[in-house]
């Protein structure tokens, strides 16, 4: 329903644009729809940060997410490793058209703390991902253009160029590979404001969950400037667990951990 309305908006706004713009926008909307409408989901994540030399840092977290009735998304991340921050929980509430809200639960102090919402270009938990990179690719946040077709490791794909409308975005253009059959994101090339290559994100090992949700086993980000890498491994994906919205409330954060 929400996706349908958004699509309607998209069509209205894009009227009068070139056919390639319209096609790009349509593909982005398909990819977005593929990522939403899951109800609720849980997973275990391992985040491996490499500094481009030989050092590696690992973090593991439990991840839970829900699509609340009013739209948007609520995500709860609970740290398991490193062990000194075990039990620390980060609740992020995303509402359409509003600033994200975040609360941190600190087990050592048994305290829930409202924190300043991150800047979109800030690093997500010290990784090569920024908050802008991990946010859902809402169609209204970009201007799209279809730029051609390609084949990535034998998978037929469309190439779509997008420009962030947010002036605070750290990127110039981005090139997105969207798979032709299932509208899955396969790869994103990020360019800086001077059109120099900045980062590349690859989506590796797609699996079908619940006969409906395609999700990758790994997200692999490489920073071309520094050589630094981040791999996010997703394990034990489960959908429609019947999670309750109240479990994603700051008041419950301290109680439920």
């Amino acid at each position: 329903m929400v996706a349908g309305l958004m699509l309607a908006c998209v069509v209205t706004v894009s009227a009068g644009q070139s056919p390639d713009d319209e096609r790009g926008r349509q593909l982005a909307a398909d990819a977005y729809r593929q990522l939403t409408g899951y109800g609720d989901a849980t997973a275990r994540l391992t985040i491996i940060v490499g500094n481009g030399r030989d050092e590696e840092r690992r973090r593991s977290v439990r991840w839970r997410s829900i699509e609340p009735r009013g739209g948007g998304e609520r995500t709860l991340v609970v740290f398991e490793e490193p062990r000194d921050v075990r039990g620390t929980a980060l609740l992020t509430v995303t509402r359409p058209g509003a600033e994200d809200e975040q609360w941190l639960y600190l087990p050592a102090m048994n305290r829930v703390k409202r924190i300043a919402s991150h800047s979109r270009s800030g690093s997500f938990m010290g990784t090569e991902f920024s908050y802008e990179d991990i946010a859902l690719p809402d169609v209204g946040r970009y201007r799209h253009r279809w730029i051609g077709e390609d084949s990535l490791e034998g998978v037929a794909a469309w190439r779509v160029e997008r420009l962030a409308l947010d002036p605070a975005s750290q990127y110039g253009r981005q090139v997105v590979w969207i798979d032709r059959d299932h509208h899955r994101l396969l790869r994103i090339d990020f360019f800086d404001r001077n059109d120099q290559p900045l980062k590349t994100l690859r989506f590796v090992g797609y699996r079908l969950y619940g006969e409906r949700y395609w999700r990758p086993d790994e997200l692999r980000m490489v920073n071309h400037r520094t050589g630094a890498t981040t791999v996010i491994e997703w394990r034990d994906y489960r959908f429609r667990m019947g999670l309750a919205e109240r479990d994603f409330d700051p008041a419950v954060l301290a109680r439920s951990q």
């Binding site: 048994n110 109240r246 419950v252 301290a254 109680r255």
Partner: peptide
Amino acid sequence: WRFGSEHVAVRAGVGEVTWGV
């Protein structure tokens, strides 16, 4: 011991509570 449901949560025993910002 703690119990939580849709609208009610109960806790009995020894515990810690923090108020303040």
